[in-house]
Design a protein around this nucleic acid. Sequence first.
DNA 1: TGTCAATATACGCTTTGGCGTATTTACGTA
DNA 2: TACGTAAATACGCCAAAGCGTATATTGACA
Lengths: 83, 83
Amino acid sequence: MKQIVRTAPQMGEALRRIRRADQLTQAELGQKMGVRQATVSRLEAGERGTELGTLMDALAALNLELVIRPRAQGQGSDFEDLF
Amino acid sequence: MKQIVRTAPQMGEALRRIRRADQLTQAELGQKMGVRQATVSRLEAGERGTELGTLMDALAALNLELVIRPRAQGQGSDFEDLF
DNA sequence: TGTCAATATACGCTTTGGCGTATTTACGTA
DNA sequence: TACGTAAATACGCCAAAGCGTATATTGACA
């Protein structure tokens, strides 16, 4: 399922869903990324201050990529997924 | 044009292209985001350490959103755009 | 090639992330 | 509802981001 993201908390939530779907704990993902479990926790919590590099590490560890595109109409829910 | 991103530098490059397409200077974008021109410069340079919040601010300022998806085959070029 | 706007760097300062190490607080489930 | 695992927090420490202010560079164009 494609995840649409506009805020840090949304990003965290999306990563959490995917991590769980991959049957990984925060500690295991952290190991793959080279960060601590606590750092993964912060990232998933959507703490604004987290480093961009940490996000990219998570994407790599989960074998994900991002697509940047103009915002679609609506509030950024999963509504657009219908298309 | 859809931008596919897997690394911080790619993210920076993509934002730069879009900012320019929007006819904005780093200073103007920074104003919208609430950060300095120097910070925008760092973000576009793809410095890993940049804060995630800064990225999200940039996306909001440029009216963009992200889509998270599984990595497609290939090296992450724009190849997949053909589909 | 000279000039002005745009972008990249610099310096001192404050704030905060991530680290190691640990502990507390959920949660899923027997 | 007690247990064991996963997740959220804590503390001291170090490195670095972003801030204000300013200055080098770079680049486009007359």
